[in-house]
Structure formats: structure tokens, C-alpha cells
């Protein structure tokens, strides 16, 4: 494979725009088509960059395409990924990988059976601070990890994210998986138990949870708490955060993934803004996906990784129902 022909399926998740621009920067990549049943979502991109448009993603899958990027509503990930796998296309799928365990197992099996690769989009692994933190942990800079306090705050994303049929859940679904994946990656230990509280606290009659506190115990004795809340008000200077306080026997590593920002005060915005100037994690993730496929190597973040972190989100909802920890 000299170059890589990539198709994009659905721009329902806003990350698709960023992935599109990341793909455009890679000389080996040819974007051969965009499929989205809602044309208005991709109109501007299709028009400006002259990318072929398909209303039905199955038409896109019938083209000469090597890999697809899926950014549909969570509930549609499974069908689209399985159809792509059956059409022998590699898949980069937005997180969370699926909305049920069974769905995710089928996605993984379909890719395996068809000899294509499945990568879960966890761009936070490509934050430079996270990469350096992982190296520091491996060097033993803080001894053995004891505990992690994490946050993945955001604002209420609205749209289909607050429709449980399409999203599979609220803030705990949306915001458990990123930091959970980082913790799995850092700890390389199985999750044994999950205790969670989730509720609708910021917007009445939302239909899904917008506040969450997820607690995780690992086989190696490490424990963690993760605030998954969509708790950032409109007046907040940025969209949210990804943070980890990694406590070790010989030190502490503090990661604040988006701390690299300036403070902008513009009368036009009507509020202060944190303008991020750090590296573009999406671009590095997409590049690594393309690199792995071109070199015929395993993708750096797998479908199993996607399943493992989503499983914790699903267990969190179980725990909320019971009001007690659940074993995994």
C-alpha cells in the first residue's frame, strides 16, 4: 500500500471536522469520499474541498477505499463498523466504541474475521503531557502508582448526545472513556470494581445524566476517581478539561492536558477565553493511524482498548442503579 484512500462516515460527532483537516495534512492520504445522511453537516466541506459526497455510507463502502473514519452517533458505530469490515475496510471509530458489550464484541470480531484493523479514537493518548507522563511512570519517577484522581469536564454538548437512544448514556458515557483509557494504558491492570454516582443536576428534564463521579479499583490495588461531569457553564473560558493527578509511592505526576493556553479577553466574546496553543492531539492520532496501516503494523489503540474503557462506563451505570460497587 503506497498511499491510503480514506473515506469518512458521518459527521454527527464534531471531531469529524478535526479528523478531516488532520487527514488533509497527510501527503499519503487521499480522502475519497464523505458519507453523511444529513448533507447540511458536510455541505461546506464537500463544496470547499471537492470531496465526493454519498448520502448512504454503503455507497462509500462500495468505492475503492482502504480505511474509513466513523464519527456517527454512538448507537450507529457498530453497524457501520461491521459493514465497513465486511467491505474489507480498516476502521477508525470515534469513542465510545459502542453502546453495549455485545455490540463492541461483534465489531471486534467482524474486523478480525475480515482481516482489517479496528482503532478506537482516543486522541488524549497523543497529548504531549500524557506521553511524557507515561514515560515518567515507566522510568519509575514516582515509584509505583497508588491512586489517580482524574477529571474530564465539559459543557453539555446537546444534540444527539442527550438522546439516550443515540448516545447510549449521558456524561458518564461520554466522559468516562477518555481518562479511563489513559488509566488503563498507564496501569496495564484489569479493572476489578466500579462504583459510580450519576444524575441529572445541571439541566432539568435532560433525559440523560449530566453529572458523574466514577470510582475504579484495579487488580494491582490502584484506585481512582474520575469526575465525568458536563459541569462547565456557558460563561466558562474553555470547553472543559482532561486532568490526572497520578499519586505514586515516590512522587506525584500532575497532568493538565489543555493547560497550554493564553488568556484572551475580547469584547466580542463577552467573556474571557482560554485559547489553546498546545500540539493538536487529533492530528497526531490520525497520523499514527495512517502510519500503522501504511506500514502494515498493528494500530496503536485497538478495538479491545475501546471496549475495556466503555465497559467501565457501562458498569458505572449498573452501579448507579444499585447504589453500590459492581464487580467486573
Amino acid at each position: 500500500m503506497k498511499g491510503l484512500k480514506v473515506g469518512m462516515i458521518s459527521f454527527a460527532h464534531g471531531h469529524a471536522y478535526s479528523y478531516f483537516h488532520s487527514l488533509r495534512q497527510i501527503p499519503e492520504v487521499q480522502i475519497v469520499g464523505i458519507a453523511d445522511e444529513v448533507r447540511s453537516r458536510v455541505d461546506s466541506i464537500v463544496g470547499e474541498y471537492g470531496v465526493p459526497y454519498f448520502a448512504d455510507y454503503r455507497e462509500l463502502l462500495a468505492q475503492d477505499v482502504d480505511a474509513v473514519v466513523i464519527c456517527s452517533e454512538n448507537a450507529h458505530h457498530a453497524q457501520m463498523a461491521i459493514d465497513a469490515a465486511n467491505a474489507k475496510k480498516h476502521v477508525l471509530c470515534e469513542k465510545p466504541l459502542g453502546t453495549t458489550l455485545e455490540e463492541m464484541e461483534r465489531m471486534i470480531a467482524a474486523c478480525k474475521d475480515n482481516g482489517v484493523q479496528l482503532m478506537t479514537a482516543f486522541p488524549c493518548r497523543y497529548l504531549a503531557a500524557v506521553v511524557r507522563a507515561k514515560e515518567a511512570v515507566e522510568r519509575g519517577d514516582i515509584g509505583d502508582i497508588v491512586a489517580i484522581k482524574g477529571t474530564n469536564h465539559g459543557g453539555n454538548p446537546g444534540s444527539w448526545f442527550i438522546d439516550k437512544q443515540l448516545s447510549g448514556g449521558g456524561a458518564a458515557m461520554d466522559h468516562t472513556v477518555h481518562v479511563m483509557d489513559l488509566m488503563n494504558w498507564l496501569l496495564q491492570s484489569k479493572v476489578t470494581e466500579v462504583y459510580a454516582y450519576a444524575a441529572t443536576l445541571f439541566q432539568e428534564d435532560l433525559g440523560v445524566d449530566d453529572a458523574g463521579m466514577v470510582h475504579i479499583k484495579f487488580e494491582n490495588g490502584v484506585f481512582a476517581a474520575l469526575d465525568t461531569s458536563w459541569s462547565r457553564p456557558k460563561s466558562f473560558p474553555t470547553w472543559g478539561d482532561v486532568t490526572m493527578e497520578i499519586v505514586g509511592t515516590k512522587g506525584v505526576i500532575s497532568v493538565d492536558g489543555f493547560a497550554q493556553h493564553n488568556d484572551l479577553y475580547s469584547d466580542e466574546a463577552g467573556k474571557g477565553l482560554w485559547t489553546y496553543w498546545g500540539d493538536d492531539m487529533d492530528a497526531y492520532m490520525v497520523k499514527d493511524f495512517v502510519r500503522a496501516l501504511l506500514q502494515g503494523e498493528p494500530v496503536p489503540v485497538t478495538g479491545e482498548d475501546g471496549l475495556r474503557s466503555t465497559q467501565v462506563a457501562l458498569a458505572a451505570y449498573e452501579s448507579v442503579k444499585l447504589g453500590q460497587p459492581v464487580a467486573l
Binding site: 497508588v146 491512586a147 454516582y197 444524575a199 443536576l201 481512582a224 476517581a225
Partner: peptide, 29 residues
């Protein structure tokens, strides 16, 4: 109340989550 703790001679580290009658939740480190 839900709590987790690492305790030895060098460190005492705790994460505790409180859920309030109001429905609010707080995590304390």
C-alpha cells in the same frame, strides 16, 4: 459516603465521595 485510601508509614492518601440529600455530589482528595 464512599471512600478509598492508601495508608502506610510514608503516605496517607484518600479519595472520598459524598452524595448530598440535594442530589449534589462532591469528591474530596
Amino acid at each position: 459516603v464512599y471512600g478509598m485510601n492508601k495508608y502506610d508509614d510514608d503516605m496517607d492518601y484518600a479519595l472520598v465521595t459524598l452524595v448530598f440529600e440535594s442530589g449534589a455530589v462532591a469528591n474530596l482528595e
